[in-house]
Design a binder for these strands. Structure first.
Length: 771
DNA sequence: GAGCACTGC
């Protein structure tokens, strides 16, 4: 709740109108007990004819609740139920989960934690929270029931659905809370939200005292946030006997959840899907892409009507496959028309929506059926469902994030999927009728080579943010924190080390005041540090913009057929000192042009990215204000010339001092401390020889690239983090020797940058020599 | 001279 709505709730309570109205169910229970209206005899002081009159928190029965749901008056609003409500209710009663209401209530009333395993189509996400609401009656306690989702879209659409089912206005009694959009009010007692949002709330309210029950949905997804929340739940339930926790998951690994929560009872709800026949290849496929295209065309030629879903790994592969399938299908005289549709997250929403288009009709009344084929990334495995899919082609690969703590780099790797993933994929064929799934690997490979479930994200990520969050949550002893899957000690060490260098943790690993402020910002620790330091350099307005831009998808658009024009458009914004300043130039130009979509189109900029950067920027700005950080800019023309940009580059260094590369003799770059050979990404606009650069991102593909780079000076590095630049910990390289000399010179009291500046001027003279 | 799978605050 915001400060404002808290205030509002307090004022409301004192009005007499409220005390006399039994339908204002959001009031704290104590208030009711003190002021029973109508001389009612039940604990809540409800009049005898109120639909909830005989309800007792934590002791209601399924019959009681169902009766209340089937009455004429909505117990939560006092209004008559609408006609539509009754119709929806009939449908709800047919959901598989409905048969288990009594069992669920028994379990949840007698246990603090319940594990619920429900397959797709069981209705668990919409119904279980309502079951709980009728038993918890959170509004009478001044509390809420929360149901978390890993994805924003799910939180929004499920809340919308449940508001309809409960016949209330979305955002009143039932609402959702996601980043940038709080659709709740002080009346809200059932709240869907993203798991990350609940985690953020926990950082300011470690016992999550606003909730009487918390449902963690889609726990099998094992997102970073869900994993931390689960660990947190284990801590909180020890301190809050009144809190109920329900963990909901798909079938696999239920036993693991049960065990983790100290043998909490497990309830199983069957799903409602159709059978899917699985086909394997007899021999391993040498080229999965070729095999996938062949299989798709084969299905199209010979199988009955029904749409196809093909899983591939990335944008380029998908676009390529779409072209090939289209070309081949057009050559097949004996097959019906085929609509080929790509699907991946960076596809513009309009193009994404096309997957819901109908398949084309047969060319002639008795001709072969028309069909659509969706060629998709993993997005169709969990995030999006396409009805009408009957055939699934699963080559068995996806791109997955991996983290290498040794060189501190996250990268994407095409890897075999897990059995759980394969089952999820095949299930996509049976949503509307029986289907078939073609796995492009052998049954033996499925049984023996695929791992059971995909490794949880916490084992595949850089944990800087996670550790900072845990510290902020008051968890000091990370080694003994009860992770469901404990990360590698080396990964934790790397995170602690990073946070220590950034000044977020002291040498004993305790959160510093700086670290506490950093944790509030919804960005990487490095960028949080940069934001907090920026007023000191007189450029917090500019750093705000840059950080926002670094947190949205790529701003520059470069269609394969218009590369030259796109590069020319980009050239207008290029800043010689690097890409961060170029981003800033684009942002200023975008704002000057009135945040105009056409301007973006004409200048090869991604309108959605810039718009979203604007959004992120205002959120970060609010956090800056809350932390009492000044929002300042340097005058653009101030002497010496270029001071404006120098200040920004220095501020960048204050956060990115660990992401630095030095140009060695011979021209190649080596990262500092880890000594990885890297190249400037070809998209970089840095147009002269730069001895020292900071970079935003290490891109590991066939080569090591550093992307989004800006030139800095050696002395800024030493100033930003003297502790980190303890050269005794550095491997021998030219960069180290340069820094050593600089330190020596400083010791002698000499001026730093004489030689440095000479070198820089020389560099500028040889502009563009690289090309 | 070009590899952003997918989420989220």
């Amino acid at each position: 709740m915001s400060d404002r709505s808290q205030k509002r709730a307090k004022t409301d309570k004192s009005t007499s109108e409220v005390q006399e109205n039994p339908y204002l169910a959001h009031l704290p229970r104590s208030e009711r007990l003190v002021n029973p209206s109508n001389g009612g005899t039940n604990v809540y002081g409800l009049p005898a004819d109120h639909p909830l009159a005989n309800f007792e928190i934590g002791k209601t029965t399924a019959e009681q609740a169902e009766k209340a749901e089937e009455g004429d008056i909505n117990p939560f609003t006092g209004k008559d139920f609408s006609g539509r409500y009754k119709k929806i209710l009939t449908g709800r009663r047919k959901l598989p989960v409905n048969k288990h209401r009594k069992e669920f209530l028994d379990l949840v009333q007698n246990n603090q934690v319940v594990i619920l395993v429900g397959e797709t189509g069981s209705g668990k996400t919409t119904q279980i929270p309502q079951f709980l609401v009728f038993d918890e009656l959170p509004a009478f306690k001044g509390k809420k029931v929360a149901c978390t989702q890993p994805r924003r879209l799910a939180a929004m659409s499920v809340a919308q659905r449940v508001a309809e089912e409960m016949d209330v206005v979305l955002g009143e009694e039932v609402g959702y809370n996601i980043r940038f959009e709080d659709c709740t009010s002080d009346k809200t007692f059932l709240q869907y939200m993203t798991d990350g949002m609940l985690l953020r709330e926990a950082m300011n309210d470690p016992l999550l005292s606003r909730y009487s029950a918390i449902i963690l949905d889609e726990a099998h997804d094992r997102t970073l946030s869900t994993d931390i929340l689960m660990g947190l739940m284990k801590e909180i339930i020890r301190k809050r006997a009144d809190l109920k926790v329900v963990v909901m998951s798909a079938t696999l690994d239920a036993g693991k959840f049960q065990k983790y929560f100290d043998d909490a009872p497990l309830m199983n709800v069957p799903g409602r899907t159709f059978p899917v026949e699985i086909y394997y290849t007899p021999e391993p496929e040498a080229d999965y892409l070729e095999a996938a295209i062949f299989t798709a065309l084969q299905i199209h030629r010979s199988e009955d009507a029904g749409d196809i879903l093909l899983f591939l790994t990335g944008e380029e592969e998908i676009e390529d496959a779409c072209r090939k399938i289209k070309a081949e299908a057009d050559q097949m005289p004996d097959a019906g028309p085929l609509k080929v549709l790509p699907l991946y997250s960076t596809l513009p929403p309009q193009a994404q929506k096309r997957i819901y288009e109908e398949a084309p009709p047969a060319k002639t009344p008795n001709g072969r059926p028309g069909r659509k084929i969706v060629v998709s990334t993993n997005i169709a495995e969990t995030s999006l469902t396409i009805d009408g899919i009957v055939y699934v082609i699963d080559p068995g690969f996806s791109k997955q994030k991996v983290y290498n703590p040794r060189i501190r780099v996250e990268s994407l790797l095409v890897s075999p999927i897990s059995k759980a993933s394969a089952q999820q994929r095949s299930g996509r064929a049976g949503r509307t009728r029986p289907g078939k799934c073609f796995r492009l690997y052998t049954e033996n490979a499925f049984m023996k080579e695929l791992i059971e479930t995909t490794y949880p994200e916490i084992l595949r990520s850089n944990l800087g943010t996670v550790v900072l969050q845990l510290k902020k949550l008051g968890i000091d002893d990370l080694v003994h924190f009860d992770f469901m899957d404990p990360p590698a000690p080396e990964t934790l060490m790397r995170a602690l080390e990073l946070l220590n260098y950034l000044g977020a943790l002291d040498d004993d690993g305790n959160l510093t005041p700086l670290g506490s402020t950093m944790a509030d910002f919804p960005v990487d620790p490095q960028m949080a540090k940069m934001l907090i330091e920026s007023p000191r350099y007189g450029c917090s307005n500019e750093i705000l913009s840059i950080v926002a831009l670094l947190n949205v998808p790529l701003v520059f658009v470069r269609p394969p057929s218009e590369r030259k024009a796109a590069d020319e458009a980009k050239a207008q914004f290029e800043h010689p000192d690097g890409d961060h300043l170029t981003l800033l130039n684009v942002y200023h130009a975008y704002k000057t042009a009135g945040a105009d979509q056409k301007w973006c189109y004409d200048n090869y900029c991604n309108f959605r990215s810039l718009k979203s950067a604007d959004n992120v920027r205002s959120q970060l700005k609010r956090y800056m204000e809350r932390a009492d950080l000044d929002l300042v800019s340097m005058p653009f023309d101030e002497k010496p010339r270029g001071a404006y940009y120098t200040a920004i580059r220095q501020a960048l260094t204050s956060g990115f001092f660990m992401q630095v590369a030095h140009q060695e003799r011979g021209g190649s770059y080596l990262t500092v401390k880890d000594n990885q050979v890297v190249r400037l990404h070809p998209s970089s606009c840095l147009d002269h020889v730069a001895e020292w650069v900071v970079y935003n991102e290490f891109v590991l593909t066939n080569q090591n690239f550093i992307r989004t780079v800006t030139e800095v000076r050696a002395e800024w590095l030493l100033d930003a983090a003297p502790g980190y630049y303890d050269l005794s910990t550095f491997p021998n390289c030219e960069g180290k020797r340069v820094l050593e000399k600089l330190i020596e010179r400083r010791k002698r009291g000499g001026s730093d940058d004489r030689r440095d500046r000479d070198r820089k001027d020389k560099g500028r003279d040889s502009k563009r020599s690289r090309r």
